[in-house]
Amino acid sequence: MHAFLIILQLIIGVMLVAVVLMQPGKTNGLSGFISGGAAESFYSRNKSRTSEAMLSRVTVFLSIIFAIICIVQNLIK
């Protein structure tokens, strides 16, 4: 059981790193500074349906599973 949890945690950890690295940066950089950056657009109104929102939800899900596995492994020892 302990070996299974270690392997599962390793797989989830690698997946979590990959999902975090796939997410775009949250800053606009210099282009946001020049143009103002806070304009209302179609993208900002439908942000919950984009791939960024999906990646964010997957990140939260994997982090919770990773934390639960850590706690279970600690209780098993």
Rank of each mutant, 00 (worst) to 15 (best):
R49F: 15
G37M: 10
K47P: 00
N28V: 04
Q73A: 06
A53D: 10
Y43W: 14
L5R: 09
V72T: 11
T27K: 14
A18T: 14
Y43N: 12
Y43Q: 13
I12S: 00
I76Y: 12
P24T: 02
Q9F: 09
S31Y: 03
I64L: 15
G29Y: 01
M15S: 11
I11K: 01
F4M: 04
G25F: 07
G13A: 03
I68S: 09
A3R: 09
K47R: 15
I7T: 10
I34Y: 13
L62V: 00
L16W: 05
H2R: 14
Q9W: 07
A39D: 15
L5P: 04
I69K: 01
I34V: 10
V19Y: 01
S48Q: 15
I71L: 10
S44Q: 13
I6Y: 09
I68Y: 07
L62T: 03
Q23M: 10
S35H: 12
S63K: 01
G37V: 11
N74W: 05
V72A: 08
L16Q: 02
V14R: 00
M1G: 12
V19Q: 01
A67V: 06
E52K: 15
L21P: 02
S63C: 05
L55K: 06
M22W: 05
A67G: 06
E40V: 12
S63Y: 02
F61Q: 05
L30V: 06
R57D: 10
G29Q: 04
V60I: 11
V58Y: 08
F4Y: 04
I11N: 02
L16Y: 05
F66I: 02
S63L: 03
Y43V: 12
Q23F: 08
L21S: 01
S35A: 11
V14I: 13
E40F: 15
F61H: 09
K77F: 02
F33I: 09
G25I: 04
F61E: 06
